[in-house]
């Protein structure tokens, strides 16, 4: 089954979204993923096809347990499909080894988790600097970029605070800044506003929308937040592991 892109206007996409580049940034074909075996087996994905164009912000919509996170993990190289292929920038993610997948996440794909995924013993600035440290970027360049990104997410004054000293929204902003630090081609966000109140969630979504546009990256965002869907270029819906069409 293939999910056709929905019309951005019809889907509530913002007018004037980024121009699409030719060729898919993400191409998912016939992906199956099952957890467990036998009677207790859980079929998380059942033959999913999905294309995401470069620069596109796609909202992945579905109820809890519908397979959103599984699909994101497969795209991000955190998991491997039982069947089917996942191409990111033309690279078959499933065919990569552990180290290559790690390299993929380090250089091309950035994650934003619902639970933020910040390192608790590091400050906001240090958390943001992690992707740059993984690339062994020069210190000065790293510090400059961290400063820039914290400024971008509005947390420059909180650079030296640790996650437990920040609010949920601030933590998610740090997570977004960290995701952007490595200048990824693809941003994968798993319910980034799931633990935030409406107002904070809105500001975070606006931030994602803004940075996607500003950085010219592709974004695949799992959400069931209508506001987020409204901000996306398009939205696709997952039901019981299948893409069932536009949200």
């Amino acid at each position: 089954m293939s999910a056709e892109p929905v019309d951005a206007a019809a889907a509530g996409a913002r007018p004037g979204s980024a121009a699409r580049e030719p060729g898919a940034a993400v191409q998912v074909r016939g992906v199956h993923r099952t957890f467990g075996r036998g009677r207790s087996a859980v079929h998380a994905l059942r033959g999913v096809d999905l294309d995401v164009s470069p620069g596109e912000l796609v909202a992945l919509v579905g109820r809890s347990g519908s397979g959103k996170t599984t699909l994101l993990n497969l795209v991000g190289g955190l998991d491997r499909p039982d069947q089917g292929t996942v191409l990111v920038d033309g690279v078959d993610v499933a065919a990569l080894g552990d180290d290559e997948q790690a390299e993929l996440r380090r250089d091309r794909v950035a994650f934003v988790f619902q639970t933020f995924g910040l390192m608790p013993v590091l400050t906001a600035a240090e958390n943001v600097g992690i992707p740059l440290r993984l690339r062994v970027a020069p210190v000065a360049e790293r510090e400059r970029r961290v400063e820039l990104l914290l400024d971008l997410v509005g947390l420059a004054p909180h650079a030296l605070q640790r996650p437990d000293e920040l609010s949920g929204g601030q933590q998610q902003r740090v997570a977004i800044a960290r995701a952007l630090a490595g200048s990824p081609r693809l941003l994968v966000a798993d319910e980034p506003t799931g633990q935030l109140d409406t107002e904070t969630g809105l500001s975070v979504m606006a931030l994602i929308r803004g940075v996607v546009e500003a950085e010219g990256m592709t974004a695949l965002v799992a959400t069931h937040d209508p506001l987020m869907i409204a901000l996306a270029d398009r939205a696709v819906r997952l039901v019981d592991g299948r893409l069932v069409g536009d949200a």
């Binding site: 552990d98 180290d99 790690a102 993929l104 996440r105 995924g117 910040l118 390192m119 992690i130 992707p131």
Partner: peptide, 14 residues
């Protein structure tokens, strides 16, 4: 959990 976070950010297990 930290290990998983780092792994998710692209840090090799080694």
């Amino acid at each position: 959990l930290d290990v998983a976070r780092l792994h998710g950010l692209g840090a090799p297990r080694r």
